[in-house]
């Protein structure tokens, strides 16, 4: 591959991810509105929010780590996008593989922890300690799922995993070959998105949105951008692992929005668990289902 082509892809992939991510945020808010019998926000609402937040005239920083933390939170996902193969663009997916991607997806939480730590707000500290506990809870089933899929495909390279599924046709998709792992992956997805049954760290009524409590202006704007990337990354990764990736952008958008609809519609129907219930539940059910799935794969 030409170097210039690679550089272009490295710029384009996060950019496309950002735009699709904003569409996903809009989809989340529209879906919630429809479930609650409301009209919902207009088409460009996520974009207006981001522009407004970056356009605030006074910005309150709590120090250098506060700034760096937000950059890490966004940068972790931006780096992850270049490792996610999408139709027409592979980026550096062939060199990174799924293990690097797993590591990169943890960086945003850690960056957020750094940034929130400097804010020295008790609500923020409670929120971030909950977020890290939640990460501990969902990462174990996530690693089991990723191991199972990689073992089944005989490769930790996402491009090869997708190719193997596409050559085997629809019957060869991960969701039909490894249904137990797909179920465990779906529960993990809900945990990693931090949506309602597992929404322990963003608790508006209790700890006033947890990690975001001291974030205003461009910092909150950064977190909005991060959320867009987060939706995109998790949905596209699930599509690549279990739904056979996608040959065209239409198929990718269709599949990833479909994947995202499941946790989001659950989120608007259920209240949430307490933190210790979350850890107990995530370490029991997805881990058991995942281990059973791995046993079938082996």
């Amino acid at each position: 591959m030409m170097l210039s082509e690679l550089l272009l892809e490295l710029v384009l992939m996060p950019l496309v991810a950002f735009l699709v991510g904003l569409m996903m945020v809009l989809w989340m808010r529209r879906l919630g509105a429809r479930i609650q019998r409301r009209v919902g926000p207009p088409l460009l609402q996520p974009l207006y929010d981001v522009i407004k937040l970056f356009g605030k005239e006074t910005q309150i920083s709590h120090g250098i780590l506060h700034d760096i933390g937000i950059v890490m939170a966004m940068g972790g996902y931006i780096a992850a996008e270049t490792l996610l193969p999408v139709p027409g663009m592979d980026g550096i997916a062939a060199y990174g593989g799924i293990i690097t991607l797993t590591y990169l997806m943890m960086i945003p939480s850690l960056g957020l922890a750094l940034g929130v730590g400097q804010c020295a707000n008790p609500n923020g500290s409670i929120g971030i300690s909950r977020a890290l506990t939640a990460m501990l809870a969902y990462d174990i089933p996530f690693v089991i799922v990723v191991f199972g899929v990689a073992y089944h495909a005989g490769s930790a390279n996402l491009i090869e995993i997708i190719d193997a599924q596409q050559q085997a046709g629809v019957r060869g998709w991960g969701i039909f070959e490894m249904p137990l792992l797909a179920i465990a992956g779906l529960i993990t997805l809900q945990g990693s998105l931090g949506k309602q049954p597992f929404e322990v760290y963003v608790a508006p009524a209790e700890i006033a949105t947890g990690p975001m409590v001291e974030m205003g202006g461009k910092y909150l704007g950064g977190l909005f951008v991060m959320q867009a990337f987060q939706f995109y990354t998790t949905a596209v990764l699930y599509t690549a692992l279990f739904l056979g990736g996608a040959e065209s952008w239409t198929a990718l958008l269709l599949k990833s929005f479909l994947v995202l609809t499941i946790p989001l519609s659950l989120a608007y129907l259920f209240p949430r668990y307490r933190i210790e219930d979350l850890v107990r539940l995530l370490w029991k059910w997805p881990v058991m289902i995942g281990l059973l799935g791995v046993a079938f794969v082996l």
């Binding site: 609650q36 929010d49 508006p204 409590v213 205003g216």
Partner: peptide
């Protein structure tokens, strides 16, 4: 805020802390 007069269609949504 809720379904009768839904203010989110104007882009107005509730927030919980003064910074945001």
């Amino acid at each position: 805020m809720t379904s009768r007069f839904d203010m989110e269609r104007l882009g107005v949504s509730p927030m919980v802390t003064p910074r945001q």
